[in-house]
Structure formats: structure tokens, C-alpha cells
């Protein structure tokens, strides 16, 4: 890539110019980011006011749930570079954890605030159980094993009638209520989901900019060098896996409480693929990208409803179009954006 001795002839004004263009870039970016953040937050907070129908508010809740899933998968794939194709299994485990503990199915009706940590913990434990033997595998093998895991979990749910009520699913889940306040209406539930999205955004930002987050990045970039620099890569990957699973579990909890019903058909391989599409479309490793990607792929089918039969054809075409024209995603993360511009400068 580099010709030995190339650095000798480097332009002496280079660093200055680069610093200058970078300063300009940041100055241009900051207000834009602040503005977009404020606009986005205001828009999100007022959704129930300006969308007319309960139906659309429900769409907004679904969007929030997908955002949670995308944020979690972003840790595993975007930060740490692990190809997890069975991600939806953790979503299912979170959803069924709620269904077991808050429904007439077993006659258990635990308080929501007690179930909440369990819905993060149980999938995380499954993540560790799955990850311990498999995370030593190289990327493509890991993808196949996790894909298998996703299918196995779904098949178990489908066939363990005693435990899960099989394909019929579990119905009449408790309405979510915290300290007596019921989140029965879509509007109330939307705000609950929004709070969780906000918490997760803060959490994932902090994770990304931490000792562990940097170590995940190092593994994604060059695993062998990461090991040589003193990183216990296996334990770090496990932690990425478990954290991603916990995020998915919370999304599952939100989903189950919202539908008040769970069944295996919500947790097919197709769901994993869609979540993958969301983070790829938005920009791998980017938090706003994951949000944007989820919004686009949840809202698009609704917008395309009038063309009924061609809906998914258009959906697919659009995905192909965006990915060919903007391979870095709609809202790429800062470093990837720099990657692309700096490559152009060379």
C-alpha cells in the first residue's frame, strides 16, 4: 500500500491543511448535529399528537422496538465485527420470558419491574452459553452456527407445547403497569418505548466510547494484533454477545407487552435478516444510522401499502438502490465517513 520512503516527499503543508479542513468540518457539523438532534427529539416526543390514528401510533411503537433491536445488533456486528445471524433468538427469549412470568399460562403475574431485569439477564445468559463454544470460530463459521441457533430456538418454541404452548402461542399477557400506572393505550406505550430507546442510545454511546468499546473495535479491526496487545478476545467477544442479547431481550419484553401475545412466527430467520438490513442501510457501527435504518424499513411498507402487490418488490429494489449508491449507509458513523473522504484525498 505504501511505497517505502514515501513519507519523505510528503507535502510539508499537509498537516496544517488537514487540521484546517478538519476544523471547518467540525464547525460545520456541530450545529447541524445539534439541530438534527433537537428536531429529531421534538418530532419523536410529539408523534402521538401529529399522527392521526392509533394505528400509526402502533407503527411508531413497532419502530421503537426495531430501533432497540438494531442498536443491540450494532454492538455485536458494528462494534465488535461478529456476524450473528441468529440474533432474533435472543429477542424471542426476552419475549417468552415476559410471557411466562406475566400471563395466565403459568398463572404467574410478576411485577413488570421485576421482569425487566430478567428479560435482559436470561437472553444474556443464553448468549454466553451459545458464545462460549462458538465465538472461537472464524467469521463465516460463526454466522452459520448462530443461524442454526436462531432456528433451533424457534423450533423449540414451536414444539415444546407444554412449556410454550407451541405454534398457538401464549395470549392474554398482562398489561404493562409500573407502580399501578397502566400502559394500556398505544400512546402511553409509545412513550414507555421511547424512554427505553433513549436509555439504550445513551448506554450504547457510553459503551462505544469506553475501554471495552475500544477493545471491541480493535477485535473488529485485527483480531490477531488485538490479542498481541493484551486483549482477552474471547471474553471480550462474549461480553459483546451478551450485551447485544440483553438489548434484544429488552426489545422482546417491549414487544410481548405491546402485543399482549407471543408466538413463534414472530421470530423467524427473516426477522434477523431485516434487523441486519436496518443497520446496514443506516450505516454499520453508527447509532443514528441504526435508528434511521429502522425507521425507513418500518415506515416504508406502510407508505407502500397502496401498491399492495408490488410492496415488497419496491422495498427490495429500494434496498438494492441505496446500497449500490451509498454503500456506507444513510448515516454512516464518523470514522467510516472519514475513511471514505480520506481515501478520496489520497
Amino acid at each position: 500500500m505504501n511505497v517505502p520512503g514515501e513519507s519523505v516527499v510528503s507535502d510539508p503543508a499537509g498537516p496544517v491543511r488537514r487540521a484546517w479542513s478538519e476544523a471547518k468540518g467540525i464547525a460545520a457539523l456541530r450545529p447541524m448535529r445539534m439541530t438534527s438532534l433537537v428536531v429529531f427529539a421534538a418530532a419523536a416526543a410529539t408523534v402521538p399528537l401529529w399522527v392521526g390514528s392509533n394505528y400509526l401510533i402502533r407503527v411508531a411503537v413497532v419502530a421503537c422496538i426495531y430501533i432497540m433491536l438494531s442498536l443491540g445488533l450494532n454492538i455485536v456486528v458494528g462494534f465488535c465485527g461478529l456476524l450473528d445471524l441468529g440474533y432474533v433468538a435472543f429477542y424471542a427469549i426476552g419475549a417468552y420470558t415476559y410471557a411466562f412470568l406475566a400471563s395466565p399460562h403459568f398463572g404467574l403475574h410478576l411485577p413488570w419491574l421485576v421482569i425487566l431485569p430478567l428479560c435482559a439477564l436470561v437472553p444474556a445468559i443464553f448468549g454466553i452459553l451459545l458464545g462460549t463454544p462458538t465465538l472461537r470460530l472464524r467469521g463465516d463459521y460463526l454466522a452459520i452456527v448462530t443461524l442454526g441457533f436462531g432456528e433451533i430456538v424457534r423450533l423449540f418454541i414451536n414444539n415444546l407445547d407444554r412449556l410454550t404452548n407451541g405454534p398457538k402461542g401464549i395470549a392474554n399477557l398482562d398489561t404493562v403497569s409500573i407502580a399501578g400506572f397502566k400502559f394500556g393505550s398505544p400512546t402511553r406505550y409509545y412513550y414507555l418505548a421511547l424512554v427505553f430507546v433513549a436509555l439504550m442510545v445513551v448506554a450504547i454511546r457510553r459503551l462505544g466510547d469506553s475501554r471495552i468499546g475500544r477493545a471491541w473495535g480493535a477485535i473488529r479491526e485485527d483480531e490477531l494484533a488485538a490479542k498481541a496487545m493484551g486483549l482477552n478476545t474471547h471474553s471480550l467477544k462474549l461480553r459483546a454477545f451478551a450485551t447485544g442479547a440483553a438489548f434484544a431481550g429488552i426489545a422482546g419484553l417491549m414487544f410481548a407487552g405491546f402485543q399482549s401475545f407471543v408466538s413463534p412466527e414472530s421470530f423467524t430467520f427473516g426477522e434477523s435478516v431485516i434487523i441486519f438490513c436496518m443497520i446496514t442501510l443506516g450505516g454499520m457501527g453508527s447509532i443514528p444510522g441504526a435508528i434511521l435504518g429502522s425507521l425507513v424499513l418500518v415506515i416504508l411498507p406502510e407508505v407502500l401499502r397502496p401498491v399492495a402487490d408490488y410492496r415488497y418488490l419496491l422495498y427490495g429494489l429500494l434496498l438494492i438502490l441505496v446500497m449500490t449508491m451509498r454503500p456506507q449507509g444513510l448515516w454512516p458513523n464518523k470514522q467510516r465517513r472519514r475513511e471514505l473522504t480520506e481515501r478520496a484525498e489520497r
Binding site: L207, I212, E221
Partner: peptide, 26 residues
């Protein structure tokens, strides 16, 4: 190196084995 990380972050990764903040700390 870790090519898509900054020079500073590359060196910070080296500090990993002498520090101990975990997920909770993050």
C-alpha cells in the same frame, strides 16, 4: 495496526491490559 481507529485510540487499546473498567463502569 487497527487501521480505522485513530492513532490515539490505537495506543489506548494498548493500555487495556493495565486498566480494568468493565461494562458496568462503561
Amino acid at each position: 495496526l487497527f487501521p480505522n481507529m485513530t492513532a490515539l485510540d490505537n495506543v489506548k487499546v494498548g493500555r487495556y491490559c493495565r486498566t480494568d473498567a468493565g461494562l458496568f463502569g462503561a
